[in-house]
Simulated assay, not measured.
Amino acid sequence: MTTLYWHTCGEGKRDFVLLHGWGLNADVWHCIINRLAPHFRLHLVDLPGYGRSSGYGDMSLSEMATVVLNQAPEKALWLGWSMGGLVASQIALNQPEQVIGLITVSSSPCFSAQGDWPGIRPEILAGFKQQLHDNFPRTIERFLSLQTLGIASARKDTTFLKSLVSYQQNAEVLMRGLEIVQTTDLRSALAHCSVPFLRIYGDRDELVPSRVATLLDGAWPTTQSAIIDNAAHVPFMSHPDDFLALIIYFSQRDDLHYTVRLSSYGGVG
């Protein structure tokens, strides 16, 4: 029987589901789990087809969201990093009554650059797909290196990310993941998302330019954005203090439906 890897820990009363990005698994949260555990009942998931959930084949975004939601607690706070942000967003769109708050980290409703919309150039994503076919390990290593480019802790963070990768992963699952990143566009759908929504970015992110934050501030005026200075694609690793301060602030408000602007957040004093 196919099973979804789902690990629950923590002493808090509020359920908090964390979804990782492309090519990785729930162990990516190792660096902040001990600090989140006193505040939440944490649910650490390996997305279908990834890590210890390898029994699943390649899936669409909607199919992944359904599988994850079927095992999730009711009324949880959801966080998705990078591609995981698309999965968490799809869940919030499909079942908003089950999501008390949505947090996306270094994610975009549309990862591909389109006209004036900033993102990853289509030819770059197409190149990754071809390289994944030609040289699987090297392609994943290159992708992980892009996530830490330009930050002080780049070497340490990249080494940690690479330690999480299993080269026994299903290439078809990874290829479909890249297709999801390349083709998904949730900008219009999320403009009508009814759940409290915080978006966190790094100002040095090479994959999700921080200009996305400003554009969505205008397009989604009821959502909140935070840009962490000197952070790239993995702000929870490189800047855990600032990252955790944002999470706790967002989650501990008396009414998560009350919106406060956090745009261009610069750090915790």
Rank of each mutant, 00 (worst) to 15 (best):
L215I: 12
I100Y: 01
Q114Y: 10
C110M: 12
A219M: 15
V99W: 05
K75C: 05
D203R: 08
F40W: 09
L146W: 11
V268F: 12
F197S: 08
A152V: 13
L36Y: 07
T2I: 11
L44M: 10
L161S: 09
R176K: 14
L262N: 09
I248L: 15
D134E: 14
F128H: 06
I227E: 01
A245P: 00
F197W: 10
D241R: 13
A72T: 06
L256N: 02
C193W: 01
L24T: 11
Q147G: 02
A113L: 08
E63G: 11
M59G: 02
Y265A: 04
A231I: 05
M59Y: 12
G218L: 13
D27P: 00
L174S: 00
W78Y: 14
D217P: 05
L19F: 07
E141C: 11
R35K: 12
A72L: 05
R176V: 02
L132S: 03
G10P: 11
A88V: 03
G12E: 11
A231P: 07
E11I: 07
S188F: 06
I33E: 13
H257R: 12
W220L: 11
V195C: 10
A92I: 03
D46E: 06
L102K: 04
P96C: 09
G119K: 03
V173Y: 00
N230L: 11
S62W: 08
D242G: 15
L149V: 02
L18V: 08
M64C: 12
N135K: 12
F128D: 02
H43I: 02
F197R: 03
W78P: 02
D58P: 15
F136Q: 00
T222G: 04
R253I: 04
A88G: 09
V45D: 04
